[in-house]
Amino acid sequence: MVLTRASQRMIGRRLLQFIPVVFAVAFITFMLLNLAPGDPAELLAGEFPTEERIQEIREYYGFDRPVIVQFVDWFSSAMTGDLSNSLLSREPVFDIIASRFPYTLMMVTYAMIIAIAIGAPLGIAAAARPGSWVDSIATGISSFGVAVPYFWVGMVLVAVFALKYPIFPATGSVPFSEDPIGAIHAATLPAIALSMSGIAEITRQLRAAMIEVLSSPYVRTLRAKGLSRQAVLFRHGLRNVGITVITVITLVFNRKIGATVVLETVFAVPGVGSTLVHSAVNKDYVVVQGVILVIALVVVTVNLLADVLYAIIDPRVEAEA
């Protein structure tokens, strides 16, 4: 399980790809936001501003400069950790994200734990006995999870477990650092809603991958050696579906980060998702850019981590890379 030289080289190459990907994401968002209708200067100038006042604000913020210059200016300071200040609150964007991100991370992590804890055993149990009642339940759950929109699940959960039976709060959030149990309690409903599609995806993919492994010729060899069904399933099956597990978890995690944009608004969680929506609506482009850059960084880092895990789990990765 030690990384070979070839795997190390592969990881090195992935690290080098990291920079251009982040740069491209930053560049495209910056340009798209510039194309979006509405002038932030007009917004900042307040009601009935004079043309001179708007021009003054443009010059003050540097909006009058060529877009490319604005981008280079913003990106180079972003590299040093300075994401400039919110147009609305004047607060540094970095501080806004730093204070909001823990809520998002907590919710997504919670949802991932639920999705893996339910999806993985369900998928494996279904694959061990295809066509059985366990398999039917697993297939049913995964069809339901894929088909149902998570914000709708969220609203149903609120209606039942917050309004009718007030077990969990309908909205709001508690910082994990101050009150861990309260934080988990408050994040339960959004996390369940967020985990639905993840449960579905993990169950489905793991079931398919495990069935493929169990029908491969080497499983027949293992049985011919006298290994029990359990040893084949848990020892050989799990290591062989490892690649699929990592891929699915990465994919689901990245999608969940995106889904927080809607779900945090539904549950009024002060995370980066709701910040993004709020800033976009108020044309606070500086905050939007900062949040997207940070989300891109998180996604790329998670993907890099997945690549490292591939190299550790599957000895053939080095041969293919």
Partner: peptide, 8 residues
Amino acid sequence: TALDPVFT
């Protein structure tokens, strides 16, 4: 294909 590819 008769040997498990991820075991030595």
